[in-house]
Amino acid sequence: MRELPADMVLPEGMVPDEPPATPAVPRDAATVVLIRDTTTGPEVFLQRRVAGMAFAGGMTVFPGGGVDRRDADASIAWTGPEPAWWGRCFDCDPALATALVCAAVRETFEESGVLLAGPDATSVVADTRPYADARKALENRDVSLAQFLADAGLVLRADLLRPWAHWVTPIEEPRRYDTRFFVAVLPDGQRADDVTSEASDALWQAPASAIADWREGRRGLMPPTWAALADLDEFDSTAAVMAADRTVEKIVPRVVRRGGTLHVVLPGDPEYPTGTDNEVGRR
């Protein structure tokens, strides 16, 4: 488990002064770290969330969001590792694994315009512009991912994803997510954009550069985002990232107040609370 920087703090107000008597139940969610090769090494796609949003407003994040109940639709045309394999990677049952993979594909398309699907098991859409109306319909929840893919004659490409990490929001926070992180390479011909109501800007950036922006105060990063960037900074190509032998470990941070500021601590840290049920509120 990567150690967080000692000077990483959370925005004031993210955690209430009085912790909830009963921690919120975390909502299942999926996040996708999109990567691409450049002449100087891999870059990642980042979005700054609109300020004022209920969760992580103003913070820089990867595309992602909560699981929709329709994401578990077993009728979705799928190629790649089966749900049982994803379940073993993320320590969950196949039904939830199906929903997580589908949520990852859906949220990535909604928030960045990148679609990890193709006409068949060996191809991927090269231009997603013809699906602009469907993208908006997905975002508005007017259609499900299964309906969109069926109408478009597309197959979900689960083989384009890799499991990367698993973070659960601290029990001190009022909005909690049980988030599985995936990585995926930007498909040839496609482009990631900022056409989403949830982001004020978006960009491709080298992991080290994104961390430098955080350190200089130009961007805010949540601990899971910082950790993913720090991990990815160790790779010199997207092929190496996708070939990495990762063991996904669930991380349940806690929030402590240190010198008037909010800090996140991880299991094993001397300040990590002990003698408490750190899984309170989990399904």
Rank of each mutant, 00 (worst) to 15 (best):
Ala199Asp: 01
Asp236Trp: 12
Arg106His: 11
Gly189Pro: 01
Asp213Cys: 08
Gln147Phe: 13
Tyr177Cys: 07
Leu96Val: 09
Thr39His: 15
His263Asp: 11
Ala206Pro: 07
Ala29Ile: 04
Leu138Asp: 05
Tyr177Leu: 11
Val248Trp: 00
Thr39Glu: 14
Trp204Pro: 00
Val124Phe: 09
Ser200Glu: 11
Ala99Met: 08
Val255Gly: 08
Gly41Phe: 04
Asp151His: 10
Ile251Asn: 13
Leu203Cys: 11
Asp28Ala: 14
Pro94Val: 03
Asp68Lys: 10
Arg49Gln: 05
Arg283Pro: 14
Ser112Glu: 03
Val256Ser: 05
Ala126His: 08
Thr122Glu: 13
Val101Asn: 00
Gly268Phe: 13
Ala165Lys: 03
Val50Gln: 03
Gly153Ser: 06
Leu156Thr: 08
Gly87Tyr: 00
Pro23Glu: 05
Ala146Trp: 07
Gly65Thr: 03
Leu156Trp: 05
Trp86Phe: 04
Asp91His: 10
Arg283His: 15
Val264Thr: 13
Leu154Arg: 02
Asp120Tyr: 00
Trp214Gln: 09
Glu107Val: 06
Pro19Trp: 09
His263Met: 11
Arg254Ser: 15
Gln47Leu: 05
Gly87Ala: 01
Arg219Cys: 08
Arg176Ala: 03
Ala21Tyr: 12
Phe148Thr: 09
Ala202Thr: 02
Val248Phe: 01
Gly58Met: 01
Trp78Phe: 05
Arg129Met: 14
Pro253Thr: 13
Val25Leu: 08
Leu156Tyr: 05
Ala244Gly: 04
Ile211Pro: 03
Arg135Tyr: 04
Phe235Glu: 05
Leu232Gly: 01
Thr225Phe: 10
Gly268Tyr: 13
Asp194Ser: 11
Asp93Lys: 09
Asp71Lys: 04
Pro267Gly: 15
Val255Asn: 09
Gly13Cys: 11
Cys102Met: 12
Gln47His: 05
Ala239Val: 07
Pro163Asp: 00
Leu229Asn: 02
Met222Pro: 08
Thr276Glu: 15
Thr108Ala: 06
Pro207Cys: 08
Ala21His: 12
Ala74Glu: 15
Val264Ile: 13
Ala152Gln: 10
Ile251Asp: 15
Thr22Glu: 10
Cys102Val: 12
Leu46Asn: 02
Arg141Tyr: 07
Leu154Gln: 03
Glu249Ser: 13
Thr274Trp: 14
Pro174Leu: 03
Ala95His: 15
Ala206Val: 09
Ala192Cys: 00
Ala208His: 13
Ala126Asp: 10
Gly57Lys: 02
Asp159Gly: 01
Leu4Met: 13
Met14Lys: 12
Arg141His: 10
Val67Arg: 02
Leu46Asp: 06
Asp37Trp: 00
Ala104Pro: 00
Phe181Pro: 06
